[in-house]
Design a protein around this nucleic acid. Sequence first.
DNA 1: GCCGTTTTCGGCCCGACTGTTTTCAGTCG
Length: 577
Amino acid sequence: MPTHNADIAVIFDEIASLLEIQGESPFRIRAYRNAARTVGELSREASELLEEGGHLPGIGADLAGKIAEIAASGHCALLDRLQKELPPAVTELLKIPGLGPKRVKALYHDLEVQTIEQLYRAACDGRIRALPGFGEKTERNILEAAQAHAENKQRFKLVTAAQYGEALRAYLAALPDVTRTSIAGSFRRMRETVGDLDILVETKSPELVTQRFIACGEVKEVLAAGSARSSVVLNCGLQVDLRIIARESYGAALQYFTGSKAHNIAIRRIAQKLKLKINEYGVFRGEARIAGTDEESVYRAVGLAYIPPELREDRGEIEQARAGRLPRLVELGDLRGDLHVHTKATDGRNTLREMVEAARAQGLEYLSITEHSRRLTMAHGLDASRLARQCAEIDKLNAELKGITVLKGIEVDILEDGSLDLPDEVLGRLDIVVGAVHSKFDLSRAKQTERILRAMQRPHFTILAHPTGRLIEERPPYDVDMSRLIREAKARGCFLELDAQPDRLDLLDTHCQMAKDAGVLVSIASDAHSTLDFLNLRFGVGQGRRGWLEKKDVLNTRGISELRALIGRTMHRERRP
DNA sequence: GCCGTTTTCGGCCCGACTGTTTTCAGTCG
């Protein structure tokens, strides 16, 4: 079983947790946490990169040695030793909100609590309140947190967070004396999932806003309520933190609470070297505030260009900002068409005409109809004759409608052996062939990669749809060598899709970066199954921005004639003038 | 454990809230 970056990241995180409980130096612990993150986000195997003499930030000789050790053996001697000193299960306890390393250590040493189940029983028995530093209230909180944990609190998809967050923000914005509101945090960075929402409010009346916030109908539980911060859990389980911000600090607070944590630490380190201090109230030289009214001023104070929220992950954006070389990220308005759409003919909910009219209403100039192919019987996939009928329908529509061009396409199934679900001569009559895997997700990396490479080599293959097949929080991605797929796409002149459905967002952000670096254009597509789904394009654009994509890196920012040249086929209209 | 326009040793981001204390530790973001 080969050891990949994700396995190394898990081991480093586990080491960090065990060292934490042992009371080790916080800096040593941070080194392991940082390394876990760096390796986990890396787009190629860390061990290979290091073997070739490459360097990774925050990974010195010792950690590089451990990466090599884990890659070679699947084990790390340090972790094995730590797990003999402490039962491995105790790190689970750290996941309970309110329990940090000190308390976990006390629970283990004094009460022999190792598991969440044991924790729950100790709390029920009233044994926790007897420990020094613990009290009745802490015990009750632990009990509730352990129960909530058992109910498996998960992260929320961006689209879900948007529904609650945007409604709540509007509610707060309408309160008297509220002059400004923002949703910060990972939501603003457009992460595919968010753990909680951070809402910032500028107001002269903090008490009133706090009262109205915690009394709001959606609130199930109040976790904290202070003059600067309150924290609640909504009925749906989503935690929302409200921050009350003074006008002069708004930019500093927005920067601070947008994160990411790693980005902010890096920014504050730069400030430190410049003898400045950055916190959520501003940028300070000694006692004097020198910036913080708006975000731009914060970055300017440390010698950086403004960094868009989607890039703030400490993945090189700070260096590029210093050099004035930040990308000019793609925007929703840059999209001129959508290349992956379904209709009622298969598993969509709207007719061809309804989809085309909705796309036109969104301002799109072209739309590619890409139904499922026959293999997907569940979706009533098209065979050659039904596809031909749809093409005739598209011809009629194109002749009639102004302002939008409808392209003939298919989302053809990539079968297990890498062949396509319709013959080449049928696919050759289309403008665009989107290929996708919908079965056999569990092939080995080698087989899955070969399968998709074979499909991409078919003569009419245009775009690889949702290249990893993952469903966020539901189904893991299939194991595939993305760098090989990208190399093949480059060689064959085909493209990768970023599926904008909020539960797919597939490509990942790091894959977008790889595609961009390789010069492979990405199609940001809605994969719409109803007229409402075009609204999801904003999430796809958000993901693309996280992947550093610029307008020029995105296939469907091209006008129709340039697109036609890129996809290398003559469209039907031009064939029969 | 990492790292270097202050450094190969001595630093390493910063503040709010809660609960258990009686001035602060622990946790969180």
